[in-house]
Computed example of a mutant assay.
Amino acid sequence: MKVKSRVLMAGAIVAIAGIVMLLILTLTRPPLEIEAHNAALMDSSSGQLLFGQREHEHSSPGSLTKLMTIYLIYDRVAQGKLYWTEPVQVSRRAAAIDGSKVGLKETEVLDVESLLYCIALPSGGDAALAMGEHLAGTEANFVELMNRTAADLGMKDTHYTNIPGFDSPQHFSSAYDLSLLARHLVEHFPDILRVSSQMETTISRQVNGEKISTVLRNTNTLIPLYRGCNGLKTGHTIGAGYCLCATAQRQEAKLIAVVMGAESIENREQETVKMLDYGFDSLHAN
């Protein structure tokens, strides 16, 4: 009995020492400081917010707006209301759009899967508008759908006025809402990570009767630089600054980091890396 008691006592001492060491590490860890204006770090599995900096403040999301179009594409495919091989004709308005675009031509026809790649990798506003018009008839109708969906997903700090993500006083979101949207996207439709983790792909197009190939390059240059990074979307406008919604996984730990209002591409990547490192350290998944 004495030997058993000693073994139990030794085990208890080891356990207590481990807890004390964990508390010391937690208490002595320097606070996370992010230079970007808004930031949020979320545990994708649980939805727990691990870090926030003005995470509920209304801010221009830039092309992170397109995450909602991507979500709605997957949602409609899952419901059987849309098919990956379904043809979509590009309107004059979509072809003439300003901002980031693929260069789609009026009356050109692409399938839904190709348009998804056009939105997810090079952030094609022309492709996003073409999909929105295809799904809802007009941009105005699709924007209504975007706002209804945002409300359904619990995005309380978000209001959309356009599909591509142009700056507008009434077009805003928050770092928390975007991390919430990203979580719904990757947890319900994990195929998006297969798409968004590709640094480039090639699609075939028919333009004026001529078959051409177009290389689509991913604007998320953090993917090959950070171990475990597998998505998700970049954004930039004058009003939004440089934005990034990044996803990463190590072992079983899955993180979503949102940075808004960074000063440059390099700055948004540096701040995102700081948050991801902090998150994986918190979840002990290094």
Score class of each variant (00 low, 15 high):
45 S>E: 14
127 A>D: 06
126 D>Q: 09
77 V>I: 15
52 G>Y: 00
102 V>G: 10
116 L>G: 07
61 P>V: 13
103 G>F: 01
23 L>T: 09
42 M>L: 13
53 Q>C: 01
34 I>C: 03
101 K>A: 08
49 L>D: 03
116 L>A: 09
72 L>N: 09
35 E>R: 12
64 L>T: 15
87 P>D: 05
86 E>D: 02
66 K>I: 06
32 L>S: 08
106 E>I: 04
21 M>N: 14
70 I>C: 06
117 Y>R: 14
51 F>L: 01
94 A>T: 02
73 I>G: 03
29 R>C: 01
119 I>E: 08
108 E>I: 15
95 A>K: 12
79 Q>N: 12
94 A>F: 00
51 F>T: 02
43 D>P: 09
112 V>D: 13
126 D>A: 10
41 L>M: 04
47 G>M: 03
25 L>F: 06
100 S>I: 04
66 K>E: 09
36 A>N: 03
57 E>S: 07
39 A>I: 00
46 S>N: 04
102 V>D: 10
95 A>H: 11
130 A>H: 05
128 A>Y: 02
94 A>C: 01
32 L>Q: 07
108 E>P: 13
26 T>G: 05
59 S>T: 06
39 A>R: 00
68 M>P: 08
72 L>A: 03
66 K>H: 09
128 A>P: 07
78 A>W: 05
20 V>I: 15
93 R>K: 02
89 Q>H: 00
105 K>N: 12
66 K>W: 05
78 A>I: 06
58 H>D: 02
56 H>P: 01
99 G>H: 04
110 L>I: 10
56 H>Q: 08
67 L>C: 14
